[in-house]
Simulated scan of single mutants.
Amino acid sequence: MKEKTIFELIHSMDQVTNHLIIQWNKMFNESLGISHILVLAHLKENGKSRPSDIARALGLTPPTLTHLSEKLVQKKLATRLVDDNDRRIIYLTITDKGLDLIKKAQEEGKTLRKNLFEKLTDEERQQLLSIYGKLNDSIRK
């Protein structure tokens, strides 16, 4: 059997990821991308946050975060708060509407994962989790 090159491996991983993104966008139908949901999830998990901190945590550029947050504020999924002690500092915080949307996104995500990963055996799912865990650990070092 021919050994796959690193490029074939990356391409194969990209194909699965792209398929998941396309399927999720079709299911979710909220005119928001996955990056918007990641920002909301960050706010849910961490509470009010400075946009620069969110950008750093999610691996986004500050201008990208500005664009994403503008849409979230427009849709009333997040709000901007000014720091009481230093009016130059702005925070983003999630709204109740944003929390409801996160819940919906998570439910849709569960359905998507179930549909994809049910094709794998329990052992294969555990191997995949182990492999991705190992890769993620090596990236963080």
Rank of each mutant, 00 (worst) to 15 (best):
E123V: 06
D86C: 01
K103S: 15
G98F: 01
K48I: 07
T79G: 07
L129R: 12
P51F: 00
G59N: 07
N29R: 10
L77V: 02
L120E: 14
K71T: 03
G98S: 03
R50N: 03
Y91N: 07
Q74A: 12
I102V: 13
H36W: 10
D53I: 05
T64P: 12
E118Y: 08
G47H: 04
D53C: 06
I131D: 10
D83P: 11
K104A: 06
I102M: 10
N25H: 07
S52K: 09
L99G: 11
K48E: 14
F7P: 10
E30L: 07
T79K: 14
E107W: 03
D86T: 00
D14S: 08
L68T: 05
P51L: 01
R87K: 15
M13K: 12
G33C: 09
I37P: 07
I10L: 15
L68P: 05
N136H: 05
K76Q: 14
N29Y: 04
K48W: 09
D84P: 15
G47T: 05
L40W: 04
Q127Y: 11
L135M: 12
S31E: 13
N136A: 07
T64Q: 13
K4Q: 12
L20Y: 02
H36Y: 11
T66F: 09
L129F: 07
L129V: 01
N29L: 02
E70K: 14
G133K: 03
F7R: 10
L32T: 03
E123W: 05
E8K: 00
T66S: 14
E70P: 08
S12T: 06
L72K: 13
T64N: 13
N18G: 07
T17L: 09
I21T: 11
N85K: 03
K134D: 08
S49W: 00
E107Y: 05
S35T: 09
R80D: 05
L38S: 14
T64D: 10
Q15P: 09
Q74D: 15
D122Y: 01
V82R: 10
